[in-house]
């Protein structure tokens, strides 16, 4: 028995199956992939479900035999949700509402992060504490007075309602971006700065010519994340933009109502009623721009934390 266990062939077999110090065994590899696929399925399944439901015709939807493979590619749902969402207009609004504040927010966050990282002054711990507080304050603790002020100024419904806070470093989750830039600039070598100063460069000039180019990845990552978060933010946009600009997620959240305005339930045939397929096509149209952006820019998401070093001690 011991001869079989310690036989060279058994040893090799064991090494292939269970691995050794040098490489992983087959059993471990299979288990790893099984787990990865299972978890990947958890993330993809809702998307797949959403997409497949969205191309189902009303007939397929009622047919209990049709689960994952529709009998035909039915694009009628998309045609209708495209109209209900008022797609071209809301898409443009969403892009503007997320890109403009993000640009400003990123720029201002870099200025503030630079000030915190490169200068010694009294009260810095207080500023960091306040930054943390701005991050954790729930939006509903500040939103009502802001909304009333905007109403008095006639800014309610205007993109300015979101742009102004971003311009003053109080945009959505701005504390995170300030910390990203702080981490970036704090590790910048002092030598460059000092030699530039000897050449007579002003602080602003040093910031623009030396610090900003060195933090390019942080700028890109912050801008991308900021855009995505502004895009997905619905609480603030609903309150500040109500009655004015309508973004894609806002229109999605009142999809049923908008649908019935366009296709009154009394006036249309049963096939034209609002069903899951139409709703899902609307949801899919809503995340489609983000998906496209994600797949184009995925490297910047995947490597973002390494590039910005936010976990640095």
């Amino acid at each position: 028995m011991t001869r079989i266990i310690h036989h060279p062939t058994t040893d090799r077999l064991r090494s292939i199956l269970f691995g050794s110090r040098a490489h992983r065994g087959v059993v471990f590899t299979i288990a790893l992939y099984a787990l990865l696929v299972a978890i990947g399925f958890v993330y993809l399944q809702p998307l797949l479900f959403m997409f497949i439901t969205s191309i189902k015709s009303p007939g397929d939807l009622l047919n209990p035999m049709v689960q994952w493979v529709p009998t035909e590619l039915y694009l009628g749902n998309y045609a209708r949700s495209f109209r209900v969402l008022n797609y071209p207009q809301t898409l443009l609004a969403s892009v503007l509402i997320s890109v403009t504040p993000s640009l400003l927010q990123t720029l201002v966050a870099s200025v503030v992060g630079y000030g915190l990282a490169r200068y010694r002054f009294w009260g810095k711990p207080i500023v960091f504490l306040l930054l943390l507080i701005t991050f954790i304050i729930p939006p509903q603790n500040t939103v009502i007075p802001q909304m009333l002020t905007y109403r008095n100024l006639g800014l309610l419904g205007s993109p300015l309602a979101l742009i102004l806070p971003a311009l003053l470093g109080q945009g959505y989750r701005s504390a995170i971006f300030i910390l990203i830039f702080y981490q970036n600039f704090v590790s910048l070598p002092k030598v460059l700065e000092e030699s530039a100063r000897l050449d007579g460069a002003t602080d602003l000039r040093i910031f623009i010519t030396i610090a900003m180019p060195s933090a390019l990845p942080a700028y890109i990552v912050s801008f991308i994340f900021s855009t995505v978060w502004y895009w997905n933010e619905t609480f603030l946009t609903t309150i500040f933009l109500e009655g004015g600009v309508t973004t894609l997620p806002m229109q999605l959240s009142r999809f049923a109502q908008a649908y019935e305005n366009l296709y009154p339930p009394g006036g249309v045939s049963i096939f034209e009623r609002l069903n899951e397929a139409v709703k899902m096509s609307g949801t899919f149209l809503n995340i489609l721009p983000l998906l496209v952006m994600y797949f184009v820019l995925q490297r910047w998401f995947v490597e973002s934390v390494e590039m910005t070093g936010i976990t640095g001690e």
Binding site: L47, F225, V228, W231, N232, E233, T234, F235, P249, L252, S253, T283, N286, I287, L290, L291, M293, Y294, F301
Partner: peptide
């Protein structure tokens, strides 16, 4: 990261 939003 990209698609977690309220309405979705």
């Amino acid at each position: 990261i990209v698609i977690t939003s309220g309405p979705v």
